[in-house]
Design a protein around this nucleic acid. Structure first.
Length: 207
DNA sequence: TATACGATCACCT
DNA sequence: GGTGATCGTATAC
């Protein structure tokens, strides 16, 4: 049928986490609020590989904050950071294996004006451009109204926040590099675990 | 109990 | 390129 609205199936979240990060590129992140769809195409992701990955929150002691990463695949791990921002991850791997993919940037496709308004500068009232409305992990959460109330949400079977599949991108369309903002993570900081659509204008930096 | 700091962003120079 | 915002959590005392 119309594959446009098919969810990415749960099995897809059981691939190697770096493979999930690549598979999510080009897929559609959808938020539904009061029956209204707002959405964008995922253009940038990062893989976080569990307890051994010093850049991964699960490398520290298991706590309430990271519990969702230990849960079933295809659910949302959301964290609050810098006292200001929220970031969204899709949990990968079976229960008990705490890995996830950070969604870092979207190209907005539905409800673009709602997204721009959600990101209105509270001091100046200025709206971001369409290209810049969700070109960062905290920006996309603000644009789509994602916060800790959605912690643990099922991205496969839920009705508030989910991911719809699109055809997998050819590897030549995917660029790879080190993850952002984890300089403290030793040798893990340099590993090629950040993925983005080559040349896409909505990538958070240096696309 | 106390303290340091973060998977970021916006604003400044 | 540098820094402040702003608070939950981890780690130390």
């Amino acid at each position: 049928m119309c594959s446009e609205h098919e969810r990415l199936p749960r099995e897809a979240y059981l691939l190697d986490t770096a493979e999930v990060a690549r598979r999510l590129l080009g897929c559609r992140l959808v938020r539904e609020i009061a029956g209204h769809r707002i959405a964008g195409i995922i253009v940038e992701t990062e893989a976080y590989l569990g307890r051994e990955d010093l850049g991964c929150h699960a490398a520290r002691s298991r706590s309430e904050r990271v519990e969702a990463m230990y849960g079933p695949p295809g659910h949302a791990y959301i964290y609050f950071i810098y006292g200001v921002h929220h970031c969204l991850n899709a949990v990968t791997q079976p229960v008990g294996e705490p890995q996830a993919v950070l969604i870092r940037a979207l190209a907005p496709t539905e409800g673009v004006e709602v997204q721009r308004d959600n990101r209105r500068n509270p001091r100046t009232g200025v709206l971001p451009s369409e290209l810049a409305v969700a070109n960062g992990p905290a920006k996309l959460c603000q644009a789509l109204g994602i916060d800790l109330r959605l912690y643990g949400t099922d991205l496969v079977a839920g009705n508030e926040l989910w991911i719809e599949q699109e055809p997998a991108l050819p590897s030549e369309s995917i660029a790879v590099g080190p993850r952002v903002g984890i300089a403290y993570a030793g040798e893990w900081a340099a590993k090629p675990l950040r993925f983005w659509i080559t040349g896409h204008p909505c990538v958070s930096r240096g696309g």
